[in-house]
Each structure stands twice: as structure tokens, then as C-alpha cells.
Simulated scan of single mutants.
Amino acid sequence: MDRIDGIRAFVAVVDAGSFTRAGDRLRISNKLVSKYVAALEGQQGVTLLNRTTRALSLTPSGERYLAAARRVLAAVEELDGQASAEEGALTGRLRVTAPVTFGEMFVAVLTRDFTRRHPALSLDLHLTDRYVDLAAEGFDLALRIGQLPDSSLIARRIGQTEAWAVASPAYLASHPRPAHPEALRDHLCIRDSNAQTPGRASFLIEGKAVSVPLPGRITVNSAQAVRQLVLEGEGVALIPSFVVARDVAEGRLQRLLPDFARPQLDIQAVSLPQPFVPPRLSAYLDHLRARLSPLLKAPPPGS
């Protein structure tokens, strides 16, 4: 066994929390991961992991070895990256996760363009509105919209958007058009549970951020599902502008309260802290920064 394979397997098990998830991350069987770790322990003459049927934990020797193992892998990654950079090619694999609607509308296209420019690189794009644990699930990067909780993750802003208050003409035909954010408390609101506070929304009123309630009976964890319910006249909703800009331009939805600005939502790329950022990850981030904002600002088709 190559010692680097053992070190890589050991670190993957620690980060993923199990041999099975580590195997998925490394694209090898969990039995092979276990074999690599056992061989590494044999080479070192110490036990690195406590194994039980319920959980894994680091031994004192494993805790000391882990920091050095991460430095070794970072150095190997740096050497590989320098060699590839000198040849002008990006190689390896990136695992990226993004919200479903945003991913379908923008990230898939940007990823396609990136891999066309770098044919020796493979990219695994996983779209989910679930909060993904990068370390446990083996992702290099997560794209997230809105305010992020405090964490040790490294966040880089790659764009901005905002949520528009919208309703259908049919709904507005039977309900008074709100003239002030406070009027939303008198409407049926469709809430998106992906928002940080689904039952409330902030507006800038006279230069100050004011939180107003969004009463309603339906809360759903999909911007597209919220959009569809609003199109069907079920109520008012706050939806990211990139999701509904075309509907507004073509008259299927009407934007409400345009004179009351809302806080901008940062679109951020989040990654694990690491001593060396692989060139393929840096290049993908640069690609997103350069290409995303023009797409977000472009007028919707047919407008």
C-alpha cells in the first residue's frame, strides 16, 4: 500500500465520520478504506482510531497524527497543482453542491462552460436545498444564498441578489394591493422555508431595516414551488428575483412594494479551511465570480 493512500483514507474517515462515507468520498469500497487505515496503523505501530459498532473516535495518537497527515496531503496537493499549472492543465475532481433552483438556472451552465475549458477535470455537481456538511460528505465547495451562520468555513462572495414581493394579477383582482410592507400582515403569504426567517421579512423603511410578519398557511422548501403557488393565485410571496424576473417581465406576476428596498442577499461560495487551495478550486471560483453577476443582471428572455 502506498503510504499516501493510507493517509488519505485516514483523513477521509475522520472527516466523513465512517468508513462507508469515506469510501464514497474516495470512490473506493469501505473495505478498502478499512484496509488502508489498518495498514497505516501497522506501519506507524499505533492505533489511530477507536472502532465500535456505533461510532469512531480518534485515539490520542490519532489526534496527534491527524494534524501532520493534513499537512502531508496539503503538500501533495500543492505539488500536484504546481505540476499541472506548469503544464497549463487543471486535473482532478471537484465536488460542488448548490441550491436546486439556483443550480438549475445558473450553476449547471457555468459548470458546463468551465469543464469545456478544462477537459482533464471532472466535476460532480450535487443540487439540494439541504444544508450540506462539507467535511462529512466530502464536498470541496458549497454555494449558499443569504446570511451564513458563524462557522470555521471560508466564505467568498461571488454575487448578490434580492427577494421580490410578488403576486399574480388574479390574486390582486380580489385582494387590495399592499402599499406598505406592514400591509403584508393582511395577506395570504406563501413562505419559503429555505429563508432564514420564513415567517418574517425585512424591508428598508426610512433608511432602517424593519421586520414585518408574513402570515400564511403554506410553507414550502422550494423557490419554484412557491413561485408556482403564487402563479396560481394562492397568495403573496417573497421570491429571489432571478426566479421570477421573467414572470414579472411577461406579466404573469406583478412586483409589489418596489419603492421599499430589501437587504441584498449574498451568494457565497463556502469551503473548508485548508493550508493550500488546489488550483482547480481557485480557477472554478474565479470562473463563478467573473460569469455569475452578468447572468444575474441580464434581462430575462423575451423582456
Rank of each mutant, 00 (worst) to 15 (best):
L148C: 09
H187P: 11
A179F: 07
S202W: 08
D129I: 05
F139Q: 00
T197I: 03
D124L: 12
L184A: 01
G146S: 07
I158C: 04
A209D: 08
L148H: 06
L148E: 11
E162Y: 13
F139V: 01
S168A: 04
A142D: 01
D186S: 10
T161Y: 02
G199R: 10
H175Q: 08
A170E: 14
C189W: 02
D133Q: 04
A136W: 13
S202N: 04
A173F: 08
W164L: 07
D140K: 04
R116G: 06
S174H: 15
I190C: 14
S152A: 13
A183V: 10
T161K: 00
Q147R: 13
I205D: 00
A183G: 00
N194C: 11
Q196W: 06
A179P: 00
G199S: 13
A120R: 15
R191F: 11
R156I: 13
R117K: 11
Q196D: 11
C189T: 10
G159P: 03
P149N: 15
R117V: 03
T161C: 00
T115H: 03
A201K: 04
P181H: 05
R191I: 00
P149D: 14
G146F: 12
D113C: 00
S122N: 06
L143G: 01
R191W: 07
G138S: 02
T115Q: 00
L188H: 10
Y171K: 03
R144W: 11
P176I: 07
R185D: 02
I154P: 00
R185E: 11
L204V: 15
C189Y: 04
W164V: 05
L148Y: 10
Y171S: 02
G159N: 04
L188F: 11
